[in-house]
Nucleic acid binder design. Sequence first.
DNA 1: AGCCATAGGTTGACGCATCAACCCGAGCGC
DNA 2: GCGCTCGGGTTGATGCGTCAACCTATGGCT
Lengths: 166, 166
Amino acid sequence: MRQPMARMRPMAEEPWLDETQQRAWRAYLAMSKRLSTHLGRQLQRKFDLSPQDFEILVNLSEVPGRRMRAVELGRATQWEKSRLSHQLSRMERRGLVCREAVPGARYPEVVLTEQGYAAIVRAAPTHAASVRAIFADALEPELLDRFAEACAAISERLEEHETDPC
Amino acid sequence: MRQPMARMRPMAEEPWLDETQQRAWRAYLAMSKRLSTHLGRQLQRKFDLSPQDFEILVNLSEVPGRRMRAVELGRATQWEKSRLSHQLSRMERRGLVCREAVPGARYPEVVLTEQGYAAIVRAAPTHAASVRAIFADALEPELLDRFAEACAAISERLEEHETDPC
DNA sequence: AGCCATAGGTTGACGCATCAACCCGAGCGC
DNA sequence: GCGCTCGGGTTGATGCGTCAACCTATGGCT
């Protein structure tokens, strides 16, 4: 989160985005800010989980043995290793996960504790229901498709630009 | 940012989101995460500004006198007062803004410094160009419209739900 | 064997976000 | 006048995100 505002006609004469583009951009910014705030707050208040906690718990809970090397968890979440390490430390402190040495292996595995499993089982239904109520059911099937299409197109652009020497 | 993942078929048989919905949700999550990362990183690396710095600078630069009471800035950005206060303190330390007492008035005004103004003038064109290249130009006009429509629909849902007793 | 590069992981520092607590002056009721 | 509440604003604690620095087995090279 964190969505920067864009100044659309900054200090200059010619607009860099036309009216339609500007409306779309502002609508997107407002929506995404609100959406993540809403979902995050609900998780926090009802289940004492941050969205980040939730993401880790989801990934661990889906895998057999509910355990994973940190590096796999990193691949699954697309998080940087240091971010992940910090997050796991905090979650370990709270008893949601623990790092368990594997005999003979160099690196420990991250294991979902009973408590962590209980937490995700409690939170997931409500969260999914919210996503459905606010996101999925807000859009006609056809509009939902176009929305997904637009997201994919933007992601594609991003991939092109990310390879650029910035 | 911060976009929580959703678990779509959590521990249960029946899916809470159908295939289409799930695809759309995942596409949105991936896109929005990448987009804010990309724009934020560009601002930070090229101009040494966080997206938050940028948003404050934009708002101040648009107003006559380039000065504003904190409470107005709060309305403009929709930030909580404490978040705003912290942010202004950091920006003041760096010389981008300053808090200036107004004789006879109770509260000081937040003033854009020369340095702050120079920073936004430097950064804005590139930022707007990025928004255009990645977001606006990625979508055909018609798709852009539908996208905006979808965003608006979701925002509407959110407003309904936010008034609920959570 | 000895050396080095690299990958997986941790740590510390700092900026950012949120919550709760607090401060204080203006306006109001009495 | 006296005391209230209330709104604008600050502060501190804690969690989160990123960057840079660091640690250390392993695996490759010679």
